Amino acid sequence: MAYVVTENCIKCKYQDCVEVCPVDCFYEGENFLVINPDECIDCGVCEPECPAEAIFPDSDPKAADWAETNRQYAGSWPNITRKGDAPSDADEWKTKSGKKALLSPNPGR
């Protein structure tokens, strides 16, 4: 089992979760983070750190549609090991739903 990042992270990308990950399995896209499920050790320390409540175990029904997305982008986006700055409008996007179409396939910086 692994944890995955879901839709709530899109356009929020707070990165609090990155700081606590003991195996550095987060990867950064332009407006989204993903967890490499092959690297995740299922420790769960990232889940409570996410202000957008976007991280779930892959066994959770909320994560079902996102496991493959996490795997796909973890293979092409840069690894991130330190917390960076969240977008200036992250708080505005935090509680919005229906953001899947806004997911950028572009890698982060």
Rank of each mutant, 00 (worst) to 15 (best):
K62R: 14
A64H: 08
D58M: 04
A2N: 03
D89F: 14
D42T: 06
G75I: 13
C9K: 04
K13L: 15
D58A: 10
G98W: 13
T81P: 00
K11A: 09
E39S: 11
K94Y: 01
A101N: 04
E49D: 13
N8R: 04
W66F: 12
D91E: 15
N79Y: 07
V5C: 01
D89P: 04
E92T: 12
N106C: 06
E53M: 04
R82H: 15
D24F: 04
K13R: 15
E19M: 06
C40V: 02
G29R: 05
C9S: 11
C12F: 05
I55R: 03
D16V: 00
L103R: 06
G84R: 04
S88P: 12
K11T: 14
K99Y: 12
A90F: 15
K94D: 10
N8F: 13
C25I: 07
D24P: 00
N79H: 08
L33G: 09
A101I: 11
L103G: 06
V4G: 12
N31C: 09
S88V: 05
E92Y: 12
A86I: 11
V4I: 06
Y3F: 15
L103K: 07
S104G: 10
I80R: 03
G44Q: 01
K13M: 15
N31G: 02
V4C: 14
I41N: 05
D24T: 07
I35M: 07
F26V: 01
G44E: 02
D58V: 02
Y3Q: 12
F56S: 03
K83S: 10
E53K: 09
Y3N: 03
P105D: 11
T95K: 13
N79A: 14
K100M: 14
F32I: 01
